[in-house]
Structures are given as C-alpha cells and as structure tokens.
Amino acid sequence: MSGVHDHHGSAEMTRRVDALVARLAHRGLVTDAAIAETIESFLTHAKPSNGFRIVARAWSDDAFRARLLDDANAAVAELGIDLSHWAPVTLRVVENTADVHNMIVCTLCSCYPIALLGPSPAWYKSAEYRARAVSEPRAVLAEFGVELPERTRIRVWDSTSEMRYLVLPRRPAGSDGLDEQRLATLVTRNGLIGTALV
C-alpha cells in the first residue's frame, strides 16, 4: 500500500484492529476491500498540492483571490477540487498581510483541512502545539524558524466548529515573473497552516 510504511512493535495493535474489523464485518458495517479502498482514495485525493494550486491561483488572479476570501468553497470548486470528498466542511481562507499573520490550530482535537493539505503532520496533533499555539504563538513560530516583525499581529484561528481554515501566505518578493505552475512550487504545507511564511 503506498504511503503506508510498517514499523516494528505494531503487532498487538494490528491484532486489535483485526478483531475490530472482524466484529464490524460480521455486522455488515465494513469489509477489508472497503477499508483498502478508503485508504487508497484518501492518499490519492487529499494532498497538499491542492492547497498549493489554490494559493498560486490567488497570487496570480486578483478576482479569484477576492472570490476565495469571500466564499472559499465555491472558489475551490472552480479549480475542480472536491472538498466534500471527505466530509462536508466550510472552508475559510485567511490572508496574511504586513500587519496580520494567521495561524491555524485545533485545541480541542485535530480539525484540519485534510482535503487540501493531506494527512496532518504529527506536530499539528501534538499536545505541545495544541496547548501553546493560543497562549504563546510567537514562541511557537520561533520553533518553526519563523520570526515576524514586532508590528505584525498574530491571529490564531482555533478550529472549534465545522469551519476549516487555510492560510493564504504573502506572495514572496521576487516572484513577479513566475507563472502559476512555478508559483505553486514556492508554497509549503506549513505555509498554509501559518507555521511558515510561505
């Protein structure tokens, strides 16, 4: 299975999952085939390249950028990206400026725009990030190597409802001549969470 790498020490967990699957399969709730198909489909569709395309388009098309900030679900659909593939969520895009830097967290669990960014990184789900992102975001950003000017206000979005957030980073200086495809290569996954500048 692509995207999945088996480590040591998981034999007991595997046995427990086997037992769960057997119990649920007996009741007609899951099949091994459906599980495999769900994993494969997830790894195929939920990718950060979706997020990179959205940002590159927003950087190169002001009208799209305006639509994206106004109604992200509709704007993203224009690019043929299906947000509803995983769960019906409402997407909000928040834009970084010279004055405001946005950062995303879910302090209560691990809500994340999975369809646009792929599986979330371990640090996003960690107790350390969830606890500290809302109390000392500047110190958290420093651990990611991000230093912001004093005057830049940090705005942290805690994903407490069905809203999912995506950060629109500032377009890097010196990227003027680049087309959308090249712009997309400048964007990073962390930039879309707000733990990187781009």
């Binding site: 299975m1 999952v17 997830f42 640090w123 960690s126 651990e143």
Partner: peptide, 21 residues
C-alpha cells in the same frame, strides 16, 4: 514542539486501517 516531519502519513498500516474504519 517536535517539528520533525514523518516520511509517511501513517506510521503503521493499522493506523491507516483505523482511519478508514
């Protein structure tokens, strides 16, 4: 925060199966 990135989205196959279930 341990900011290290994992090479794969799921560390073990059982995790991917739990996700799918």
């Amino acid at each position: 925060i341990d900011v290290a990135e994992a090479a794969e989205p799921f560390h073990n196959e059982w995790e991917a199966r739990v996700f799918a279930i």
